[in-house]
Each structure stands twice: as structure tokens, then as C-alpha cells.
Amino acid sequence: MYSQGLIGADGSTNETEEFLAAFQARIDAEEKIEPNDPMPAGYRRTLVRQIGQHAHSEIVGMLPEGNWNTRAPSLKRKAALLAKVQDEGGHGLYLYSAAETLGVSREQMTEELISGKAKYSSIFNYPTLNWADMGAVGWLVDGAAIMNQIALCRCSYGPYARAMIRVCAEESFHQRQGYEIMLTMCNGTKAQKDMAQDALNRLWWPALMMFGPHDGDSAHSEQSMKWKIKRFSNDALRNKFINATVPQAEFLGLTIPDPDLNWDDTLNNGAGGYVHGPIDWDEFWRVVNGDGVMNRERLAARKRAHDDGAWVREAALAHAEKRAARMAAE
């Protein structure tokens, strides 16, 4: 569960015009680029950065929901939540694998994450404070991510596109289980419905921020679009998400926490669409740059898991070596 927005990798590249034109011709012909194919350095760098951020988002994204693994209020919810958080781990794994085809190791990417150098979706730096957050995360955060991820299934880089196809197939239950939690709580006691509204109030704006800065302020976006690493603009996906989500909130009987939200008949070639109020981009950049409520704890948790696991990984390698030696001696 990730959405574009942080990409920001420098796509600049210094290959010859001829090389770049030949590469662009392959992209324009919708040919997929595979690991050993010649590619501009900027293309490789952009992908490594984007796939890495995407993978990190999945892995860090395990934490806010994992925060409720031991507190799920029914055995059915307990199973669904654990399966979902486990899926996020699997998605991180698929994505690290896709990035590894570009010559960067999982070990390197992990180092970049835990050192704070790499970015990940800012949404995971917000805390999950009540059970309805499990509903809202599935409904809004996975909902936002899916808009982006479906588009990425057609990304020009083969391994990334294939990983996304797998991710999208698995994620189809995530948003639904989230919405079902919201629905159950909105049909429940007043306290439950209050929790649901509270979760929506806290997560709505961060969910919109997941799509990244407005198109005009989105650095390097144009090159990514041209290379078909990114297939829709930030604003286009954000608007699509809002148009899909507002009626779902109405069905729940919840209020979108945006007093400026209004319908404009003229949008989308006369089909109409919502116009949202101003997004607090200062908050977005503050959280991206490390000063969200949970940034430090998220990184500390990942670092602890990595450091505490070192002796296990070393033991497995040591045993593998001994076993290989024994087998060779036989």
C-alpha cells in the first residue's frame, strides 16, 4: 500500500541522443524493459528509488496495523488483520526482489531505510489510535494505494509491473475488509460510530497527501510520465480517489472533514467531480522529512527487527556453509 508522491528521483541522464531516442521509441511502443536491457542511468535510478520507496512503504506499513494485531476485537477480525499485515510484508518482499533486478541489494535498501536516508509513504507516520483506524486504513489508505498500484501494473519496467500485478490481486481483499469494519462500526453503537468518524477525521487528509504534491509542484514527474514509470499525474489520481470515496462515506453516514468540499458539474468533461479544500502541504513535508508523530518509532522498530535478527541470519549462513562442506565431503 503505497502511493506515488515522494518519487522525486532525478531522472537526468547523460546518454547520447541516439541511445535515448531508441529507448524512448521502445517505451512509446509499449515494450516492456527487462533487467538486462540497456536503459538510461536516470531510468534505472528513478526505478530503484521508486521501487525502494514502495517496498519500504509496505514494510513500514506493517507497523501501524500490526499495532492492533493483539487487540482485534473478534477472532474473525484477528485472522483478517494478521493475514493483511502479513500480505504487506509479502508485498515488500516482491518489491525488494523487483528492485534487486536493477542491481541494488535488499541489504543496501534496508540500510537506507533504517538510516533514515530512504523515504516511504508519509501516511505510516501517523498513529493508529482506535480500532476504526483498521477500517479507515483499509478503506482509505489501501483505497488510495490501489488507484496508484493498478496504474503501475502497466509500468514500463517488467519486473515492477509483474510484482504489481501480484500485489493488486492480493490487495483486492484489503480495501473491502477495511470498509466492512467501517460499515459494521457505523451500524453499531454510538461509541463505535464516533470511533469511525474520528478515524476518518484523522486519516482523510493524510490519505489525500499520499498522492503527492500538486502536479505543478511535483519535481521530476514529467520525465517519469514520459518513461511510463508513472502513468497518471498526482492530481488526476487524487481526484479519482475523492470521487470514488465521497459516496462511500455518505453510505456510511460519515462526514468528510473538508468544509470546502463541493461538487462541480463541469469537471471530467461534464461528468462532474469533487473539488477539495486546500491541503496542508507544510504538514506533508514536515512528516515526509521526519517530524511526524511516529517517524522515529517506525524507524526504530525496523532497526530493532533488523539488528535483533542479525544473529539468526548469520547462524543460518554458518550452518549452510557447514552443511555444504559436509555434503561435499560425502
Binding site: 509479502g90 526482489s97 501480484r166
Partner: peptide, 24 residues
């Protein structure tokens, strides 16, 4: 081919392949 993973040896790799890639 469905993807890749990390494992120290072939036994753990087979287990991991099962745990990661055949959950559904």
C-alpha cells in the same frame, strides 16, 4: 517463474517459497 526470495540454504528457500508464494 513467480518471483524471488532470500534464504541461507535450499531447505529454507523451499520453505520460504511455500510461505511466501503459495498462501493462496
Amino acid at each position: 517463474h513467480v518471483g524471488s526470495l532470500h534464504a541461507a540454504d535450499e531447505v529454507l528457500a523451499l520453505d520460504a517459497a511455500r510461505d511466501v508464494y503459495t498462501r493462496r
